[in-house]
Design a protein around this nucleic acid. Sequence first.
DNA 1: CTCTAACCATTAGAGATCTAACTGTCAACG
DNA 2: CGTTGACAGTTAGATCTCTAATGGTTAGAG
Lengths: 146, 146
Amino acid sequence: MTEQRMPTSLELVRWIGWAQRKAGEDWIREREISHEQAFVLGYLVQNPGTIQRDIAAVSRTSAASVTSLLKGLEQRGLVERRAAPDNARVKRVHATPAGAELVAGFPDAMAALDDTILAPLDTAERATLQQLLTKIVAELPQPTRD
Amino acid sequence: MTEQRMPTSLELVRWIGWAQRKAGEDWIREREISHEQAFVLGYLVQNPGTIQRDIAAVSRTSAASVTSLLKGLEQRGLVERRAAPDNARVKRVHATPAGAELVAGFPDAMAALDDTILAPLDTAERATLQQLLTKIVAELPQPTRD
DNA sequence: CTCTAACCATTAGAGATCTAACTGTCAACG
DNA sequence: CGTTGACAGTTAGATCTCTAATGGTTAGAG
C-alpha cells in the first residue's frame, strides 16, 4: 500500500533465485529427487570421479550435507562411491547409468527455465546480463581450493 | 580440470545469492538471529501492522514458517502480535522498540554488502544490472495477492 | 622413525522450512 | 438464519542443512 524504497540488486537476485527454485519444482518432484541431488547428479555425469569435498565446494554446501545427499542417491542406485587406490581418505563418486538417465534432461530443463525467466529481456540484454553477472561471480570468494 | 560449459545466468544468480548469504553471516550471528528473522524484522519496522500472510508473501516463504519464525521473535520480545479489532482471523505484527533497535543497522549492512559484492562493476554497469534485474522481477509470478 | 598437523568423510544433534491436515473466522448465497 | 466455501493461522511430521565433534588417513618436521 505505501510506497516502498527501491529494492537493492541483491534483493532482486534473491527473488530471482526463489522463482527459479519454484519453477523447477515440477521437474524435481516428478523424479522424486531433491533440487540439490539433481544438481549434484548432473554435475557427476559431466565430472565422473569427483571427490565429495569438491562436490561440496561446487554445490556451495557443506561436506556433511554431501554425505547425506549422496547416501540417498546411493541407496537408489543412482551413484557409486569407490575408494581411490592412491588415497584412502577420499571416495570418488560416479553416476551410474540409471543416475545418468534420470538427469539426462536436467541441463535442457535448466536451459528452458533460464529462457522462461529471462523472457522479458531481448538477446542483447541477456548477453549484457550474463556478462555483468560473470564479472561479479569472478570476484566472489571461491569455496574451491585450486 | 576439464573445460566446463559456460554457466547459465540463473546459475550465476544462484552463486551470488549464496555469496550474499555467506557474507551476511557475521552480522546475523552477532545478534543471534536468523537471516530470515532479520529480514522480517526489518520489514516490520518499515511496515508496522503487517499480517502474517503478507509477511509470508514478501519473504517468499510459507505461512507455517512465518508462524515459527515469529514465535522466536516474540519470545525474545522483539515483536508483538495483536489481534485486529475488525477481523478476528488476522494478527497484526509490530516490531517492539527492542526489535527496531536490534535491526536498526540492517538496511545499511545490506547496502554495504551490496556494495561489496557489486564492487567489480562501475556505476554505469550497476545501473544497467539493476535495470535488467528489475525487468526480470517485474514479470515473475508474484506471491502477493494485490 | 615418530609426532604433529592437516585433511576427508561421517555422525549426532539442533534449527529451519516445507506440505498436509486442522481450528477458528468471515462472507456470500439461497 | 444456515450452509457452504474461502481465508488466517497453527500444528504435526518429514526433509534438508548446518555446526561441532569423531575416526581414519596422509604429509611434513624434527
